[in-house]
Design a protein around this nucleic acid. Structure first.
Lengths: 179, 179
DNA sequence: TAAAATGAGTCAACATGGCTGACGTATTCT
DNA sequence: AGAATACGTCAGCCATGTTGACTCATTTTA
């Protein structure tokens, strides 16, 4: 996989390993990494997207369904924090999901202002159908990779995410899921 | 705020290593991987997003700028294939970039129907400013990781992307960049 | 050389999912 | 009793994806 150097690059960035530099004067493998982020993410969400279409839902619905499924009983404001979107953006999709009985709301026993969100059996089923192809994609990719790849991949992905994101995800919940 | 496990998970997926299973009856580390994909991607694009705002541009402009920068002289239809969007979606952002002189069009010498796309110096500068924080994010994350992490990460990301995506990216160009 | 195919650009119309600011209502905290 | 919190909702804006139809220049092909 050797590539020739154009020679005219500014080389502000010292290359990590190979000394190979892209036409932008940036380390080629990091520019490739930027592109892999784009392609991998796009393809990764493409399978659920297809399923969602048949239900008249979009990616936003998927996210809500996912996090409610993962953290049953979460409040609306917890969900807002995790998704980092506005109340209005959330309410549109949440309304759909509640009206069509994928998500159930239960008033909190101790603070009746808070509504706890839960998946109905129908919601669980859809969630499962949406995540299945993604899990399968991971498993198939892992089969092609050396052992220990997933751990290293996860570690690096964690480093890439903002600390606030990780704190947000842990804090409001009080549960043991930590990203 | 602890909530008890419902206990009714189907456990169709055998867990890869730990035997640990999420509330969904799916291997927990793979469900976490799905979430890392969401969070890491979101945070990863957040830096350029901020810069783009100041220019009145969006993510779509960024993508065009990036691929034209990476593969100078590419045609409009090659760009359409890589981005996998429609001509209309592309034309809106491409028009902006051409009007504001970030991108230059040159008619192909041998086939005058084809327009070759290039970045102007202004375009290169913006491209550079947009990619810089992403490269830096990678470098900082790498510093926190074991050596060899980038290679493993890239390999796995490649496995995650569709084969068509990879082929598309190689074929139309005739150049040696292959994802 | 006439007809077909290709590359690029455009129009109108639509959907999704972000955003803002303002406001209402129920409930709880001080 | 009044302030703060949690949730919901209205109206409207913007970016970026979609479709289908159509033009125009240029090249290929029958």
């Amino acid at each position: 996989m050797s590539r020739e150097n154009t020679g005219t690059s500014e080389e502000i960035f010292k290359d990590t390993q190979s000394g190979d530099v892209s036409p932008l004067g940036l380390p080629r493998e990091l520019v490739e990494a930027v592109e892999l982020m784009f392609f991998a993410y796009r393809d990764f969400v493409s399978d659920p997207d297809t399923i969602l279409e048949n239900h008249g839902f979009g990616r936003a619905h998927h996210r809500v369904l996912h996090f409610v499924g993962r953290r049953p009983g979460m409040s609306v404001s917890e969900l807002l924090h995790i998704l980092s979107i506005t109340k209005q953006s959330l309410s549109r999709v949440l309304k759909d999901l509640i009206e069509e009985k994928y998500i159930i709301q239960e008033t909190d026993e101790h603070d009746r202002r808070i509504k706890r969100l839960l998946l109905s059996p129908k919601g669980h089923e859809l969630h499962r159908n949406l995540i299945d192809p993604q899990i399968r994609r991971f498993q198939e990719s892992l089969e092609k990779s050396e052992i220990g790849t997933l751990e290293k991949w996860q570690e690096f992905m964690r480093h890439l995410t903002n600390t606030e994101t990780k704190i947000d995800f842990m804090d409001d919940a009080g549960r043991k899921h930590q990203l």
